[in-house]
Design a protein around this nucleic acid. Sequence first.
DNA 1: TCTACACCTTTACGCTGCGTGAAGGTCAAT
DNA 2: ATTGACCTTCACGCAGCGTAAAGGTGTAGA
Lengths: 253, 253
Amino acid sequence: MEYTIQKLGQLAGVSTRTLRYYDEIDILKPARINSSGYRIYGEAEVDRLQQILFYKELDLPLHQIKEIVTSQSFSPAEALREHREKLLNKREQLDRLILNVEQTIAANEGRITMKDIEKFEGFKKQMVEENEQKFGKEIREKYGDQAVDQSKKKVLNMTQSEHDNATKLAEEIHAILAKAFKKGDPAGDAAQKAAELHKKWLMLYWHEYSKEAHANLAQMYVDDERFTAYYDKEQPGTAAFLRDAIHIYTDSK
Amino acid sequence: MEYTIQKLGQLAGVSTRTLRYYDEIDILKPARINSSGYRIYGEAEVDRLQQILFYKELDLPLHQIKEIVTSQSFSPAEALREHREKLLNKREQLDRLILNVEQTIAANEGRITMKDIEKFEGFKKQMVEENEQKFGKEIREKYGDQAVDQSKKKVLNMTQSEHDNATKLAEEIHAILAKAFKKGDPAGDAAQKAAELHKKWLMLYWHEYSKEAHANLAQMYVDDERFTAYYDKEQPGTAAFLRDAIHIYTDSK
DNA sequence: TCTACACCTTTACGCTGCGTGAAGGTCAAT
DNA sequence: ATTGACCTTCACGCAGCGTAAAGGTGTAGA
């Protein structure tokens, strides 16, 4: 059986360019050249190509494959063992690299957290806005439709059910927090339960949780008037109370 | 502080060629070009180069690094996470590759062993020949110079000292084996010592030792007349005795 | 016989990230 | 004025092909 370059290529699953290249670098020469200059391959060449592809699958460089398939005295086992060493080194290096990248990602958490806080800010605005809507349309009047739409856009990465969960959790927190506030002890069971639920709620927005970020956010609840306004709406001092509860929670864990 | 291209290169540990290349691909342009056409870099460029080298250490391709350092809106964390995925995939692939190579090595053990047996055969022939030379020149007369030279060629991959070691070991085996044979117990201490030394000797020729191959070789000592002749030279039955000792040795280990 | 179309050929640039000259200008010191 | 250490812009080379471009060949149908 004889093959033209394309037939052989289809048989072995390689491009004609590859076969011409193998011819060029003297790794696989056609059995003969016909009168029109066409490359004609025979059975022996098919076998040899199989061999080449086999070693190629093991990722050996072509010059090594060449030595193996051209010189019968060359030991393929030797070459493979050497190759194995190289691969093992490569893997070690790769492992170090992965560790490095992961550490870098972790170190950048601060920035990531900031980004997520921004996202959170958008969500918070929307909540405030929704709340305000219940009591009137001051927000829309104050900031215009654009601001409302913008804040909405920022939360649209959530699915509907995620959003529902978040809303339910937020209501639960609100209820427990109100009770705890009446008792007055931020270290008490109710307040700590509120802090824990708050963490749960937070993790719906943050991919990674850290005590520090949680504590910082709690402080933000007091510093940022929009937050304070939201939490203190029914009972003034609730924002500060929540902050204290969260700080106790994060310190105790 | 301003830097010429070489100063910056030394500062950061990269070649001037690299810096020119970074200029060319718009990843790090000099702060200005002086009247003679020299590239002059400033502090900002030093910082940027640090950044570039940092990401380069994480093995990110330059076009990605470019996006990170040129567009401030581009998220490095995002890029790193993607990069991490790629690296993990790469490692998986590498693991499969290593497994593949190892399996190939293992599967080829038969061939390797065969090849090494051939090599060993060559050595054996030479030893036989040397022995014969001591007692006459029959071999040379029987097979001609060509055969002798050919068998010599096969052993020439060994260094001189390796060869010396092998010869000494072979003599030792011979001595112990003779003693053990007189005692008559292939399971006895002396015979087992001979088997162990034989393994040692073998490992000078085989890169990988396996009990099966060792046991097979022992059988060959009985089946192949040239071997039998060599071992039985002084005391007939020694080849079979050695085989028994080796079989006991390989079975007990 | 003409024409279309699939197949073949060689030549050569492109990709990555520079290393390594070559040919020639500049700067500071001797 | 000369030397030597800088600097500049080309431009080839590396691996392993992908991808045209420009042109010859083989076969089938009208």
